[in-house]
């Protein structure tokens, strides 16, 4: 059985709209103009139990809207979805009891009471038996180093500490589906890494399925073998991360190290690299060439220069994704 099935999902918002200025503001009090915004258009995919899927797209692409529909917060305009056999927006308690939504930018722990007390509220809400509750709190606090934090009021915690406590609190009921919306946003690198490895371990141990959005590609590379990319509310790509790079990266980078103090003559180098822009380094240079020409250019460089080392690299995922979005924006804008 699949964990998540999404079919032709649409979500259209009606947003009030007005010009700036006093006149327009007064006018809007009387008659509000509204504009349709297609946040999600015709999105479909399936996710198997135990999968960790990266959900990528620039700001405003429709990621959060999709996650909110799947976690039951929003009704779609049309289309269907089932998660663990339930229609999420029916908000059946049996579904909500197996699901967790974690948003890096928002807290659910109560500000003024100790973390552990917030956990006890969750225990009551999720009907977690005492023995399970105790064992899980102990284990999570060991994994995430929460010992010192559990008895402090949330307002006294740092951002990173708070996020760890948020995540632990959201997992006490051992959810089978996890929606993580930017879980590492604003955290330092060490804390990001800690949370990443924790999510991986949680997935490994419980077999829960995870959908993750993040602007940090390191999160995605570390956790997700599969990615779903949406842009302007439409599905752009659904497949393995390497395939995304393979399919969308138009260029490769050739890094060349030269032997000795070889005087590099720009005029001679030009024809060797088909006139592509060359970036000089202390001991050599690098050049970006279209993928198809890479073997030919590399062979010419090896033949024509005293090369001590030559490495061909895929571009970093960040820049691939950027390219994908730029390309499709141009397509959409151009009509």
């Amino acid at each position: 059985m699949t964990a998540i099935t999404v079919d032709r999902l649409h979500k259209t918002y009606l947003v009030p709209e007005r010009e700036g200025g006093l006149r327009a503001a007064v006018g809007a009090l009387v008659r509000r103009r509204r504009r349709e915004v297609h946040a999600v258009t015709d999105v479909g995919f399936t996710i198997e139990p135990g999968e960790v899927v990266g959900f990528l797209g620039p700001n405003g692409a429709g990621k959060t809207t999709t996650l909110k529909m799947l976690s039951g917060l929003l009704h779609p305009t049309s289309g269907t979805a089932t998660v663990l056999g339930h229609v999420p927006w029916e908000r059946d308690r049996r579904y909500l009891g197996q699901m967790a939504l974690i948003m890096g930018q928002r807290n659910q722990l109560q500000w003024d009471i100790p973390v552990l007390d917030s956990y006890k509220l969750n225990q009551a809400v999720f009907r977690i038996p005492d023995a399970d509750f105790k064992a899980r709190v102990e284990e999570l606090s060991e994994l995430l180093a929460l010992e010192e934090l559990l008895r402090k009021p949330v307002r006294n915690l740092s951002l990173g500490e708070r996020m760890k406590c948020e995540i632990a609190g959201s997992l006490l009921h051992a959810p089978q589906v996890l929606f993580l919306d930017e879980p590492t946003i604003g955290l330092d690198v060490a804390m990001q890494r800690r949370i990443r490895s924790f999510v991986a371990e949680y997935n490994r141990r419980t077999g829960a399925c995870v959908m993750l959005t993040s602007h940090y590609m390191a999160d995605v590379e570390a956790l997700c073998r599969r990615v779903i990319v949406i842009h302007h509310g439409r599905l752009l790509f659904d497949g393995a991360l390497e395939e995304l790079v393979h399919r969308f990266a138009g260029d490769k980078t050739i890094n060349v190290e030269l032997a000795d103090e070889h005087p590099l003559d720009p005029a001679a180098l030009g024809p060797l690299v088909d006139g592509h822009a060359v970036e000089r380094s202390a001991t050599g240079f690098s050049v970006r060439v279209p993928k198809a020409e890479t073997p030919r250019v590399a062979a010419r460089l090896l033949a024509g220069l005293p090369v001590s080392d030559l490495v061909i690299e895929e571009p970093p995922i960040e820049s691939v994704i950027e390219q994908v979005f730029e390309a499709t924006s141009a397509e959409v804008d151009g009509g």
Partner: peptide
């Protein structure tokens, strides 16, 4: 990261789940 293991019971679920 090494040493991070979940050993508590993560599968039994509540005795009476919400909504039951």
């Amino acid at each position: 990261m090494t040493g991070e293991r979940l050993d508590a019971d993560w599968t039994s679920g509540p005795r009476q789940a919400p909504g039951e």
